[in-house]
Design a protein around this nucleic acid. Structure first.
Length: 273
DNA sequence: CGTCAGGTAGCCA
DNA sequence: TGGCTACCTGAC
């Protein structure tokens, strides 16, 4: 059965391909997505989002469709650069990921390109064994636990030094504990996440923003750093601390959305120093 | 063959 | 706080 939803503003392509989420494959105009134990397809025509294999309520929480995007964009629209990004990618939305899947994904992300991250994650999923089919597409479910993944297996799929992060994180945290962080204040939740081996500021902020509804989190990756330095600080060297304070004050409580737009923008218009 | 990558942790000034 | 390095590994 095909589901149709009218959504405005919404850009499926930017939302899927901006780098926040890894578990999808695209064929033509259609995306096959795996998240939270589901597998479903998505495509967009004009203002209508079509979907098969998933219920409406899930899509609404997945794409945060219950959140009115326009007022948020108005609020972060504080300068000409973000203004440009908003013009270009209006409808780019934050995806609400499963916290465990999100943590594991971003633990794999350090010093890896997106295709490499995806390949590690796919390897992990294959090891969990549970095969799922959707039309002609064969996928594998995200492992609930990494207890059965040996370190030699993790290395064989290219996890490298992230192997120990995965094994130790798996030992010390689970999905329910991650969910419980929602109740905390941002800095407190961040500090607790950073006690997990392999989780520093950047990964913590990704988990907070992409899966735990902390919209003030602003993951400082190298693209964003370069972009901020070049464009907002005229090439002047800035400490990371000052940059954090700046974006938090400049963009306010929805800074995470600003990060999403700027990141996407700078990846498409690479910074050449 | 060397360098570098969407990061973290550990050590030092 | 700021700065530097090693860490696995594959890509350029």
């Amino acid at each position: 059965m095909t589901l149709r939803l009218r959504v405005l503003p919404f850009s499926l392509q930017d939302t899927m391909e901006c780098g926040q989420f890894f578990r999808f494959t695209r064929s033509g105009e259609t995306y096959i997505v795996q998240s939270s134990g589901r597998i479903f397809s998505l495509w967009q025509r004009g203002e209508t989002l079509f979907s098969e294999g998933v219920e409406e309520a899930f899509l609404i929480q997945f794409f945060r469709l219950d959140e009115d995007l326009d007022p948020i964009l108005r609020e972060i629209d504080q300068d000409s650069i973000i203004h440009q990004a908003i013009q270009d990618y209006r409808g780019l939305r934050l995806i609400r990921q499963d916290p465990w899947e999100c943590l594991v994904s971003y633990l794999c992300s350090s010093a890896k390109s997106i295709p490499q991250i995806r390949s590690i994650i796919e390897g992990l999923c294959k090891s969990s064994g549970r095969k799922v089919q959707f039309g002609n597409f064969i996928g594998y479910e995200f492992p609930e636990s990494l207890c059965h993944a040996s370190s030699s297996y993790l290395e064989s799929i290219g996890a490298g030094f992230r192997t120990q992060y995965l094994i130790q994180a798996n030992r010390c945290i689970d999905r329910d504990q991650l969910r419980a962080f929602r109740k905390l204040h941002y800095l407190e939740a961040r500090e607790k996440l950073m006690r997990i081996p392999g989780v520093g500021k950047k990964v913590a902020d990704c988990v907070l923003l992409y899966s735990l509804d902390f919209l003030e989190a602003f993951p400082m990756d190298t693209w964003i750093k370069k972009g901020l330095q070049r464009t907002y600080f005229r090439g002047k060297k800035m400490g990371e601390k000052r940059m954090e304070q700046y974006v938090s004050r400049h963009f306010g409580p929805f800074a995470g959305y600003a990060q999403l737009y700027l990141y996407h923008f700078w990846r498409r218009h690479p910074i050449t120093p």
